[in-house]
Simulated scan of single mutants.
Amino acid sequence: MLNNRIPYTAIVDRPKLLLPNKKKMAVWVILNVEHWSIDKPMPRTVLPPPMGKPLIPDVPNWSWHEYGMRSGFWRQYQALVERKIPTTLAINGNVCVSYPRIASAALEAGWEFMGHGFLQGPMHNLADQEKEICKALDTIEQFCGRRPTSWESPGLTETTETVDLLRKHGVKYIADWVIDDLPEIIDTPHGTMTTIPYTVETNDITVYALQAHRSQEFFDRGKDQFDRLYAEAENNVRVMAISIHPYITGVPHRIKYLEALLDYIGSHEEVEWMTASQIGDWYGNELQRLSGK
């Protein structure tokens, strides 16, 4: 069973870890940019289809996402760049081709490019998963000059082969496994894969698109999540993820709550803002330190 590849460990039994710069908590921001094809069913909808039957092209729901790529992204980009927050860009490989303005801005800002499939859609629907993984990684590498070492599957979807195929093609860190507040190790035939603590709760898709909360909820939930983890980090390091999408928190009536959450977290001195691979590299170094190697 796939889950047996990650043996159970209790958070209270984890060895004492040390963050860079003597900080006690790591926070990483994941900005998801995706390519939605107007000639296919939408990965997610804001308006239910008329009479319950999906129509193609789905202009209103495709446009909902497209607004994020044209306007919403740039509000989030400004919020992150002005605060000098290291950012992980979870990017569909084809965004480098279809939205080069966005990819170029992220590259110029020095953000980490994290593989996020080639087009937005479940890994289970791919006829040749390995080919599509390589296509995504190759396209990103050609664009930014660096092959991604981190990955977030679209919708966090995986088959029993996904982790092995990703590791085979150079990915070392994965965000799909929302199982702990610290990284974990998955063994593969091609070396170990490190899980990076991700979130389905401090994630704007869940808060707004699925649970339909008021705009204030993203800040309230994020603050509560941070406060508890920050307190627990007195005993051992904690990692918090904030996952955002341009068409969700990039809209005018929500952006201020993202900005407020970033400012609140940034006001705490014991926080280290990091990216996916920085967290993965740090954890690997810690395992070596603890083993005495």
Rank of each mutant, 00 (worst) to 15 (best):
E108K: 09
N92P: 09
P60Q: 02
M25D: 02
M69V: 08
V46E: 13
G72D: 00
D13W: 04
V95T: 06
G52Q: 07
Y8N: 11
P15D: 00
E108C: 10
P7C: 14
W64H: 08
Q78N: 05
A109N: 11
P41W: 14
H116A: 14
K53P: 07
P48M: 12
I6G: 12
F73T: 01
Y67K: 02
S98D: 03
I6K: 13
G93N: 10
A106P: 06
I102W: 08
P20Q: 04
Q78R: 08
V29E: 02
R44G: 13
A109V: 10
Y99L: 03
G117A: 08
P57Q: 10
H124T: 06
Y99M: 09
D39W: 04
W62Y: 15
P15L: 05
I102C: 10
H124R: 14
I102P: 09
W74V: 02
H35V: 11
P48F: 10
D13A: 06
L47K: 11
N94T: 05
P15K: 09
A105F: 12
E112T: 15
V29K: 01
P100G: 09
K24H: 03
E82R: 14
T88G: 09
P86W: 00
V97L: 15
Y99E: 03
V46N: 08
T9H: 14
N125H: 12
G72V: 04
V95A: 13
W28V: 05
E82H: 06
R14H: 11
